[in-house]
Design a binder for these strands. Sequence first.
DNA 1: CCCGCAACTTAGAACAGTTCAG
DNA 2: CTGAACTGTTCTAAGTTGCGGG
Length: 589
Amino acid sequence: MSLLWMYEVLDCLNFKCFKHPCSVEHTCPVCVFNRLLELNNVGFSNQTQSSWPLSSVIGSLFCCCSEPAFMVFYGLSPGKHMKLSSTAEEVATFFAKMLDHEYTTKEVFRKNFYKDWRKEMTSEEKSKITDLNKCDFSEMSEYFKAQSEARKAMTKEDKQKIKEENERILQEYGFCIMDNHKERIANFRIEPPGLFRGRGDHPKMGMLKRRIRPEDIIVNCSKDSKHPKPPPGTKWKEVRHDNKVTWLVSWTENIQGSIKYIMLNPSSRIKGEKDWQKYETARRLKKCVERIRAQYRDDWKSKEMRIRQRAVALYFIDKLALRAGNEKEEGETADTVGCCSLRVEHLTLHQEMDGQEYVVEFDFLGKDSIRYYNKVPVEKRVFKNLQLFMEDKEPEDDLFDRLNTSILNKHLQELMDGLTAKVFRTYNASITLQQQLNEITNSEDNVPAKILSYNRANRAVAILCNHQRAPPKTFEKSMQNLQTKIDAKKEQLADAKRELKSAKADAKVRRDEKSKKIEEQLMKLEVQATDREENKQIALGTSKLNYLDPRISIAWCKKFGIPIEKIYNKTQREKFAWAIDMAEKDFQF
DNA sequence: CCCGCAACTTAGAACAGTTCAG
DNA sequence: CTGAACTGTTCTAAGTTGCGGG
């Protein structure tokens, strides 16, 4: 495979210096560049920006503010303002912008923020500002609120202008050429500085995520393409030509020291092919999954502890669609686990529970600190093994002390080429959708009812994969509204029926049509209500996007005459273009 | 083996845009 | 026409996997 990128494309990093009508704020590369210039002391063409007040120039944040005047109160002399240096001011604004967020009340967040904020202060500021609790960010916060209100209140024309400008930026920076095809870039904007927002109980929440400078950036493009130039007076960290990888740009982030990438959009060929491969691997697993199941059931009896542990873990991964569960460095991230990293404290064994034998109660935090809670009846042999694994251990000890993801994946590789732990999640998700659709779709149903069936099948998968969401804040109210609508519609239908009865013969047909139409509307509303109620705490998006072979859904649409747009929106259709081309109505996963 | 690094997929929150009832 | 509700998009954190070097 060759990689060929055109100049214009990567030019997303080749920021230009001109006064930018900054509605896109700091995420806009142009603004970032303005800031870079300032930071690097390159000086910018004052013909374009000289009329801006100093603080508006400092920090891409303010590049369109006309009245900056940011100050932090400090409580030692109540009511007094303090003018901050530009760097300290910018970090303060990050905090101010989050003031309404729960984060800013958390001790860890405040501690980390304060520590990093101090690093940006002058020595004078350091001596004056000694306690975060005495700093009042509300004036700053009000300023940003007012800004956002002003944005909302803009005229239609102004909003249109912004839209056009965004479109222009997308056209200019959002594409590249790979293998002679113009492809959309996914995240073409450099991540702006801000305060780190970890999920769950993250020990690093509130730390300052620093601004990315040209010196941090590695550009990856083909040798013969003109690579984008760094801003004047600066250098890229590196320009390389590695066609074994798919990323266009990378940099190292300062919170965890991990690498961030700019890559192509899911609609791109390179991502689409990979996606297809993923589902093909899962379909190969389908062919040998019974053999593998027989194998691990057999291994529950193994003489060797490590093999028993491996077999029980694999059983969980298969049956419960758990993630592999890599080890994590303690204190660096939130305390979450997957299958191999389960600890004794995450399981409770019940010899008998609710009339069922050998029940395992799982309670742990998984990816993104989403709670996994499940009570599962298991086979006697699994239960006995778990008792064995938990013997003489402390709650914080590893359940599978002879196992990790590397061992497990090596074993899986021997069972099937390309098999890893995550393939089970894909396989079980897709096969569940297929089975559910086959089972519950009624060809006599109308379109909305069929879509309800589809959503129910999708929901079964989301439940399996534990894709949860907090019930929307407005849930109860919106259900009530819907019920009101349904009642009104029922009323309307009753009226229509009465009219039908009393109507003269010549009007009967017309009246009949009318009540049929109302009936249909009522039905649609009722279906909607059911769907929404069942979906209260479940997020369908993740499984739809990442776990369900799109060919299943497309074939289903074709078979039952459902327009694909009812299942996949525009973006999703772009992502699954490969499958839309491929799937016939008789496709089965 | 273990560890750290690199590259890629998967994830929910936040935000923006659209729709629809009043 | 307006604002609330809903839907779609963007953002970037948090996982998995594989590799190479000691």
